[in-house]
């Protein structure tokens, strides 16, 4: 356990420390997501009826694209520092590196969402600070970050890496986006726990399947 959890925390803490130093991911991603929310506003008539219909989609599209930016930055940082090799030298199995990086980007996305949700609540006048919604956001974010961590480790080595990550991630994560949007809509309409049960199930299944598969194959993305 010590050989597993401690290095995971160490890697994630290193990412947090790096981010505190540079602050370039948080600033750029937050601004991007905020602008996305504002710009979407111009795409439709902002009457309460329309907002109720489109707001969940706007929220998750903003999170999704902001997340993609963040994943790209996380691995670009590692690559620019030449330190992916440094992680490979460490006496831990490859899945530990995967979970460490995942914990880093997951934390980062949760912080971003925690900052953005109040903005969203104000801009669209919606009661989003709901326990169900927060739990759901965490589940969806975990699945999205789980696949995103694996794919950005590959995309960072490809030509035109900025486009490669969304090309791979968006189709694969489409169930997460659908589940997140639909259950957000249901929660905002005041649906009880039971009514959104199948979406919980879908998200949990997605998270478990892809976290396990990704941790198995992650090592082969890093080694030469």
């Amino acid at each position: 356990m010590r050989d597993f959890l401690l290095p995971i925390m160490t890697i994630a803490w290193k990412d947090v420390l790096l981010e505190l130093r540079t602050k370039d991911v948080v600033t750029s991603v937050l601004m991007f997501a905020l602008l996305a929310m504002v710009t979407f506003n111009f795409a439709f008539d902002p009457s309460p009826a329309v907002i109720a219909l489109v707001a969940p989609g706007i929220l998750w599209v903003a999170f999704t694209f902001a997340g993609i930016l963040g994943f790209n930055r996380s691995f670009t940082l590692e690559k620019e520092n030449g330190s992916l090799d440094g992680l490979l030298l460490c006496p831990v199995s490859r899945d530990v590196i995967y979970f460490g990086k995942l914990l880093g980007v997951f934390t980062f996305m949760l912080v971003m969402e925690a900052v953005l949700l109040p903005f969203f609540a104000v801009l669209y006048n919606l009661p989003v600070l709901d326990l169900k919604l927060l739990l759901l956001a965490a589940l969806a974010t975990l699945g999205f970050a789980g696949v995103g961590t694996l794919f950005s480790a590959m995309a960072v080595n490809t030509r035109s890496r900025e486009i490669m990550l969304p090309v791979l991630l968006l189709p694969v994560a489409s169930p997460v986006v659908i589940a997140a949007v639909e259950s957000t809509r249901a929660i905002l309409e005041g649906a009880p726990w039971g009514e959104i049960g199948r979406w919980w199930g879908l998200l949990i299944a997605f998270d478990m399947i892809f976290l396990i598969v990704s941790s198995f194959v992650f090592g082969s993305t890093l080694e030469e």
């Binding site: 696949v147 694996l150 590959m154 791979l168 189709p171 694969v172 489409s174 169930p175 659908i178 589940a179 639909e182 199948r198 979406w199 879908l202 299944a205 997605f206 399947i209 892809f210 598969v213 990704s214 194959v217 082969s220 993305t221």
Partner: peptide
Amino acid sequence: IMGVIGFIDVPIVYFSVVW
């Protein structure tokens, strides 16, 4: 890796789209 992830994803996509 994409060949594995993509194929596993298909049934999940299908269920999410049906719902």
